[in-house]
């Protein structure tokens, strides 16, 4: 079956059902393909098992440098699992086994001589639920740089803390209470604190697992603006359940379904002209 026919068939289904309102498909607004055009990370035939259960099937994907890649798909389809493969966070889970290869700038990050700790400093992570440490705002940011010896002395640390908070757009709100506990901030502020914390270790890639799912629209907007700015310096991979968000922030979109990477490409293409019927169904809200 040719690609043409497949799309045609999908469209036919849409028309036959008659109920689908195509206006619900979000319009991609993120500037397209402005990255360096280099591949930052790539997955080759990645399979993940949790015990007996397979969660990912032969995922092949190239993540482009200094672009935002969003991972979408119905709940339980393996988005978080894939994201956590990228900084080997799955190592923490006893029963999790990863096979295939994940490369970062051509080097396999699952190779035996790779230092996981070092890898995670290069590939930072922001979690779904803001998880600031029960320390002061200042300590939350300084924690990473201190353990990696990025900073020496108080002056340097102060400077780094300020710049990280500025980049995360939080400086103005917290500069007078750096000694206050990070857990005392609002949810959106906490999430930006976590982003600042990730930035402070100067990673190359930032992974975000549904960073806005616990936030209100205003806080979400702030984080999305932040992602736009961060794209200048960092490669970002974001998991999101919001089609609108994927359309707004990302250049590339990957659609997962039941552990299979169904479709991956330019966000614009995915949203305006998806190849696969399942993708079409998902982004129009027909299933998932």
């Amino acid at each position: 079956m040719s690609e043409q026919a497949e799309t045609g068939e999908a469209n036919a289904t849409v028309q036959k059902m008659g109920k689908v309102d195509t206006s619900t498909v979000p319009t991609p607004t993120a500037p397209q393909a402005e990255g360096t055009g280099r591949v930052k990370m790539s997955g080759k035939d990645v399979c993940v098992h949790y015990g007996e259960k397979q969660a990912l099937f032969d995922v092949n994907i190239d993540i482009m440098e200094k672009e935002v890649t969003s991972l979408i798909g119905p709940s339980g389809c393996g988005k978080s699992t894939f994201l956590r493969c990228l900084n080997r966070m799955n190592d923490v889970v006893d029963i999790c086994r990863v096979s295939g290869a994940i490369e970062m700038e051509g080097d396999d990050i699952y190779a035996p001589d790779v230092d996981v700790v070092h890898l995670r400093a290069r590939v930072g992570m922001v979690f779904q639920k803001p998880n600031p440490f029960p320390k002061s705002i200042y300590e939350n940011i300084a924690y990473g740089p201190k353990i990696h010896g990025i900073v020496r002395g108080k002056a340097e640390t102060d400077e780094l803390v300020e710049s990280a908070l500025r980049k995360a757009g939080l400086w103005e709100e917290v500069k007078d209470r750096l000694a206050a506990p990070g857990t005392g901030l609002s949810g959106g502020q906490q999430q930006r604190l976590c982003i600042a914390r990730a930035i402070a270790v100067q990673p190359e890639v930032i992974l975000m697992d549904e960073p806005c799912s616990a936030l209100d629209p205003i806080a979400t907007a702030k984080i999305e603006d932040l992602i736009h700015e961060l794209r200048e310096n960092y490669t970002i991979v974001i998991v999101t359940h919001s089609m609108q968000q994927a359309a707004r922030v990302s250049q590339k979109t990957a659609f997962f379904h039941l552990g299979i990477l169904v479709e991956y490409g330019e966000t614009e293409t995915i949203f305006t002209n998806p190849r696969d019927e399942k993708t079409q169904g998902y982004i129009t809200g027909r299933f998932g």
Binding site: V92, H118, F127, K129, P134, G144, C194
Partner: peptide, 21 residues
């Protein structure tokens, strides 16, 4: 666990995570 993962995610080792978080 979110505390531990947050710390690992910043590239901390296990004992650093235990000691400092």
């Amino acid at each position: 666990n979110a505390m531990r993962e947050g710390s690992y995610g910043l590239g901390a080792t296990k004992s650093e995570t235990i000691r400092r978080v």
